[in-house]
């Protein structure tokens, strides 16, 4: 390949990404600083940070996202460990992979809708609990923060599981043998050997889930029934209902900013001693 060919092969991709990705990004940034009279101001950011309602929406979003990240981590670690290190039968492993991946091929609308049938007042869980006589009247699992969190855990779990799997399956199994030769119990081996080596997977999975959670729109919009609001719903309303592009832009930038901070923190921690501990 000559130099010329290299560039010919790359140019279409670079052009698409520059024109339709980088440039629109800058348009949003510019619009977020645009005042109603067309001058450059911090007006929309001021609006966001001085209005207690917007503030509380940011709080709700962060709360739901943190909770979602923690729970997906616990669930994800368990199943990732099970799939990579416990399952021996090939066909069962394959089915497990298919089960883990298949939600990623259906839209968030379908998956959230499934949960609406399960969690609703007439839904599966409430019917089951009432038939068993455990509760007398339906408990509200839908149209509140609980519903949104359950939905997000479900939607985002595959991302966490996959990033943990990719770390866990590369751990040398000889380390286990070495640890048990040295007299460590399986539980201690896990705590002292396997778990520390998997820090990078924990980090990248958590960062991915967290940033997807704070920016999620479909699941909160469906599971909240309009009774709870999160950042992404604010953005959508400002853009498509209020037509306040300036405020919509600045809220999306605040959202982006939070995920970039988390991402930077992730990169910093990955390079730090803490994540390297297992490799020493």
């Amino acid at each position: 390949m000559s130099k010329k060919q290299v560039y010919i092969m790359l140019i279409p991709t670079i052009l698409v990404m520059l024109v339709f990705f980088m440039f629109p990004l800058l348009v949003v940034l510019y619009n977020s600083f645009l005042g109603s009279d067309g001058s450059l101001t911090l007006e929309s950011y001021k609006t966001f940070f001085t209005d207690p309602y917007y503030y509380s929406v940011l709080g709700t979003t962060l709360k739901i996202s943190i909770l979602t990240t923690i729970i997906t981590l616990v669930i994800g670690y368990s199943i990732a460990y099970y799939v990579t290190r416990v399952i021996k039968k090939k066909w069962w492993k394959r089915i497990s992979y298919i089960i883990i991946i298949s939600p990623l091929f259906t839209s968030a609308v379908v998956r959230s809708f499934g949960w609406m049938i399960i969690l609703g007042n007439n839904g599966f869980i409430n019917n089951l609990l009432m038939n068993l006589g455990i509760i007398n009247s339906p408990i509200s699992l839908l149209y509140n923060e609980v519903g949104i969190t359950i939905g997000l855990i479900y939607i985002l779990a595959p991302f966490m599981i996959l990033s943990l799997i990719s770390v866990l399956q590369n751990i040398d199994r000889n380390l286990d043998d070495a640890a048990s030769d040295l007299g460590l119990t399986p539980f201690k081996t896990f705590i002292k050997v396997t778990f520390p080596i998997s820090y990078p997977g924990i980090l990248s999975g958590s960062v991915m889930v967290f940033s997807l959670a704070i920016s999620a729109y479909v699941t909160p919009a469906m599971m909240s029934g309009g009774k709870v609001e999160v950042l992404a719903m604010l953005v959508y309303d400002q853009m498509m209902q209020v037509f306040n592009y300036q405020l919509g832009s600045s809220i999306s930038f605040i959202m982006l900013f939070v995920s970039l901070v988390i991402l930077a923190l992730n990169n910093y921690l990955l390079k730090s001693d803490w994540a390297q501990e297992g490799n020493r």
Binding site: M17, F20, F21, F23, P24, L25, V27, V28, N31, S211, L212, I214, S215, Y217, A232, V235, Y236, M239, Y245, G248, S249, S252, M255, L256, S259, L263
Partner: peptide, 18 residues
């Protein structure tokens, strides 16, 4: 690789404005 890290709703907002 950056579109993979960017919130999708952000991508939607930016393309609409673009």
């Amino acid at each position: 690789s950056s579109p993979l890290l960017l919130p999708q709703i952000f991508l939607g907002v930016s393309l609409l404005q673009f």
